[in-house]
Design a protein around this nucleic acid. Sequence first.
DNA 1: AAGAGTATTTAGATCGATCTAATTTCCGCG
DNA 2: CGCGGAAATTAGATCGATCTAAATACTCTT
Lengths: 349, 349
Amino acid sequence: MKKAATGSASTQRAPTVCDIAAGAGVSRATVSLVLRESPLVHADTRARVQAELKKQNYVYNRGAANLRRRTSNAIALVINDLANPFFAEFATGVDEALGERGYVTLLGNTGESPQRQQAVLASLMEHTPAGLILSPAEHSDAAQLRSVLGPHLPVLVFNRKIEGGNWDFLALDNQHGAELATAHLIERGHRRIAFYGGHADSSSCRQRRAGFEKAMRAAGLHARKEWMIETKPSRIDSAASTPALFQGKHHPTAAVCYNDAVALGLMLGLVARSLRPGRDFALTGFDDIPEAALASPPLTTIATQPRERGRQAAELLLAQLGAAHTRFRQTTASAQLQVRASTPPPTCT
Amino acid sequence: MKKAATGSASTQRAPTVCDIAAGAGVSRATVSLVLRESPLVHADTRARVQAELKKQNYVYNRGAANLRRRTSNAIALVINDLANPFFAEFATGVDEALGERGYVTLLGNTGESPQRQQAVLASLMEHTPAGLILSPAEHSDAAQLRSVLGPHLPVLVFNRKIEGGNWDFLALDNQHGAELATAHLIERGHRRIAFYGGHADSSSCRQRRAGFEKAMRAAGLHARKEWMIETKPSRIDSAASTPALFQGKHHPTAAVCYNDAVALGLMLGLVARSLRPGRDFALTGFDDIPEAALASPPLTTIATQPRERGRQAAELLLAQLGAAHTRFRQTTASAQLQVRASTPPPTCT
DNA sequence: AAGAGTATTTAGATCGATCTAATTTCCGCG
DNA sequence: CGCGGAAATTAGATCGATCTAAATACTCTT
């Protein structure tokens, strides 16, 4: 009510616990207790302090609090390619789940550059985050990472395993996913099936190939070397590499693609050869990005639910914060087959 | 080299200026000066301190520094829909530009909810960011925002003007963009053109409609009320609303769509009616999201270069930090017409 | 009405880096 | 050799909230 007091506080600088304490006629300590909702303070006092907080439009200063508390409510989230819808969805899920639990997201994007990743992490570490969710850039080095992160920071690695890094890891079930896709094609009657796209030296590609081979073996089929084709995991390169599928005497009638981007590229490449995807040739993707459902024909794919993975990553990390960390653990998120029109039976047997 | 010293520091807790000072035989103040690259300290001393910093693997504590300095290097970035590739690209651009200038991004996502926006902003404000880049949720309230943000925080609003908010504003040239798209269709020979999609009460939709009407008027054509169709700005709802275009006696031969998502949805809706987009019906989008180029047919659209806008937003905000803020200013980013195959001339006139 | 026991409040030190206002060191020159 | 002034360094207070340990205020009980 007293204009002078309110006025001077709001125009000068942000009010502090001191100002509130003075206004409410209590000590700083009491104000601090109210802020942290301690049951120690008397209901009447609490009410008086809270009224004063509102009156002075107080905003809590986490930085100051963290200094003494030695723990913060910020979680660093470092993404290898934020512009990729898959990771944007993942980031959305992380931020959503963290926000619900009262945490704040410190964002960094590395654009697949390990150098930039080091720089970004170093910068974020200065803000003493309580933990880190890292979707690592390709060819990340465990030793380098450990040197920026220090030995104590709770870390959850997503998507790509880091060789020699003992951090908790949330994996997509690449192998099982590819197995499902392959089995689906086999069930539809395909016998000559290729595995198309991806870098064979990336762990996710190796795992998907393994799933493919396992399903083929289980059906008594042979996974031919010349039908294991590498491409960059991009639409463009995938489209350009299409001819590699049709070089020998026999051609495959279907392909399990490394991911949706590759599958969509392959569709373009097929069209360019006057083959109609979903008619003359069957193919599956991986990820279930939004476009997959809208391609023509709609793409049969493996759904990984990136937003859900983001939420899961956040929860795994927060769980790690609570408990004393024992051993590092790996979680594998299951993937589901999403059948659409791109996987008809073969036309000629 | 002395294992005991190094060991005890690294296993106990993070080293502070004190530890470095002790190790290098100087005072905390000197270490602090070295950290801030002050020219006051002697070259030899600087070298000695820096060696010690490296030796103890020191990491700067921004929180502590900010407390005294009353300024931080964190910028809050709050996005209305991070899962949308347009905003994901925007966020990528912001983070990129901020990172280059030594700033760190505090991320928040609101999912178009003004309530969540208030909560997210309140939470981020506790970290005393140096500024805010806000892509506001629909129906954001200026007064509410001002109450969370306080009167002094440098703010840059992106994309949606907030009624009654005196903040710097980076706008897309919605009107001119829509004008370009419309003029392009007219130039191709279309006369019966619809404006399809978006919420008529959103400012960006109003502006795009205004551009559409302006171009129509300029060509002596009439923008029919019944061909101004509202949909949610999503693919699904757009596809479902397609029949609205074909109700009267006369049908449009082309549509200027609110954005790419709407245009891609409309394509689906057309196909469902056995109309071939890019053959029997011409349509344009807005945004030039990556999918636009890969749709079939590839979509003629208005390119807004979201990543570039992100960089621009970051630079505008940082400029505002430097100078004493005078008046609030509006910047309008130009948009370019990107012609692709979705806009043929009309089949029957 | 005093004492035990609980409930509530608080003074003062503390977190880690920075700022202010010195103090100390260094140098050249008379 | 000592003095002035620049260069380099530093002790101690400070930022805002929290913690510790102790003081003060209640409530019963007898």
